[in-house]
Simulated scan of single mutants.
Amino acid sequence: MSSAEAKAARRTKFEGVFEKIRDELISHFAGEGMPAEAVEWYRNNLNYNVPGGKLNRGMSVVDTVEILKGRALTDDEYFKAAVLGWCVELLQAYFLVADDMMDASITRRGQPCWYRVSEVGMIAINDSFMLEAAIYRLLKVHFRSQTYYADLLDVFHETTYQTEMGQLVDLITAPEDKVDLSKFSLERHRLIVIYKTAYYSFYLPVACAMLVSHIPESYTVPTSPPSTVRPYDLALSILLPLGEYFQIQDDFLDFSGTPEQIGKIGTDIVDNKCSWVVNTAIKLATPAQRAILDENYGRKDAEKEKKIKALFEELNIRGVYAEYEERVVGTLNKQIDEIVEVEGGLKREVFRSFLGKIYKRSK
Results as ranks from 00 to 15, higher is better:
V206M: 06
E119C: 05
R188F: 00
A281R: 07
N333R: 15
D250I: 02
F246A: 07
W114A: 05
K196F: 09
E326M: 05
I192D: 10
S128H: 09
G52A: 07
S185D: 06
A81Q: 09
K140S: 11
H214W: 03
M102Y: 04
A81N: 11
Q111A: 15
A36S: 14
F79A: 01
D250K: 04
Y232S: 00
E313N: 12
R43G: 02
Q335V: 00
S128R: 06
S185V: 05
P231N: 08
A288V: 09
A124V: 08
L68E: 04
R10Y: 01
K304E: 08
L96R: 05
Q249Y: 07
I265V: 15
Y245G: 01
G298M: 10
L68C: 05
Y297P: 02
M210C: 09
A98T: 13
K363C: 12
G344S: 08
Y78E: 11
F156Q: 02
L153G: 01
Y297T: 09
L152W: 05
Y324A: 02
F156D: 03
S275F: 08
E19S: 14
V39P: 02
E5K: 12
K334L: 11
A150S: 13
F95W: 11
K357A: 15
K283T: 12
S182K: 14
V141T: 15
C113W: 05
V340S: 08
G121K: 10
